[in-house]
Write a protein that binds this DNA or RNA. Sequence first.
DNA 1: GGGCTCATGTAAGTGGTTACATGATTAT
DNA 2: ATAATCATGTAACCACTTACATGAGCCC
Lengths: 174, 174
Amino acid sequence: MPDLSKTAYVILGMVRMGRRTGYEIKSLVDVSTRFFWAASYGQIYPELKRLEEAGLLSGEPDPTGGRQRRAYSLTEEGEVALHEWLTSGEPIHFELRHEGVLRLFFSDALAADERRELLRAIRAGHEQVREQLSSLHNGGEDLEGAPRDVLEFGLAYQDFITEWCERLERGQEG
Amino acid sequence: MPDLSKTAYVILGMVRMGRRTGYEIKSLVDVSTRFFWAASYGQIYPELKRLEEAGLLSGEPDPTGGRQRRAYSLTEEGEVALHEWLTSGEPIHFELRHEGVLRLFFSDALAADERRELLRAIRAGHEQVREQLSSLHNGGEDLEGAPRDVLEFGLAYQDFITEWCERLERGQEG
DNA sequence: GGGCTCATGTAAGTGGTTACATGATTAT
DNA sequence: ATAATCATGTAACCACTTACATGAGCCC
């Protein structure tokens, strides 16, 4: 069981929920994990190949009409690898990369109105993401279990930063 | 004014606060912006060279005894470039990469006790970062202005996630 | 016919980390 | 003396994005 990239686990996790093509995985990622773990075709397709070679996925041709397509399902070993990762005691990696907070850190170089405008722009960014998440929430009435919890975390997270911006904006008034 | 990397702006911002060597910049980053924008020597030294060539920084030899050292200060153009970035209307990039939330997203594959343990592990990670930030807060009594605001955001941020974990842990009891 | 979506893939480039190499200075 | 810190740098590698290439099927 060699170390897999986190993106490999995203794929295993998505395939576990049902037989999937690379295209489907990408579409799913884009409306779910994207907000805390993104993936592009450039990662997904090569990774699917590697995971099949490693025996964690089994792929079969699954054409629709004359259109080529390959669908993958989890093997027993894939299931085990996913479960091991989910329960692994390894340090859990998390990072925030936030250009807005970075700008703010250096914002003593700004005039008061410029700084307020910066805060407003940061807030606007998070409000926009909030809207995107919110539309997923309404679109998927059937959403249940962990994915629902995580989506709700996403909403609360955007709100937290939004409110923090508002508080600082208020503190700058006058 | 060609597009600079965000890390270039970190450097400009750090140099703006006073003449700096690459080593000092790295040390400063490690106790301040690291939590929302990190930088390694492998980025800093080459970037310092490029910024000097581009005329945004001016570097001068500044040996301590027989030990070579090069100190940089902001040029007028550097000041302008930094200010332009701070006030730029360009979309502000922010991303969260969180393996814990990712695991949680797939945690319907886990037993209840495994899921609780996962939440505990995520929480522990954020509590640890909170401690690190907190020690910076106490160490730097003189901390003022934007850097203080940002540090306090960092603390509140860790607390927010910690509390969210606690809430989910409670929701899983019994 | 034209444009959208489904579908798979690759090449080039970006941005970043890690590990290493080197050596002077300072503190114990 | 020796360990830690100050100080600069590079090479190899890694993860990931972007842009491109290709083509089928579906809807108007």
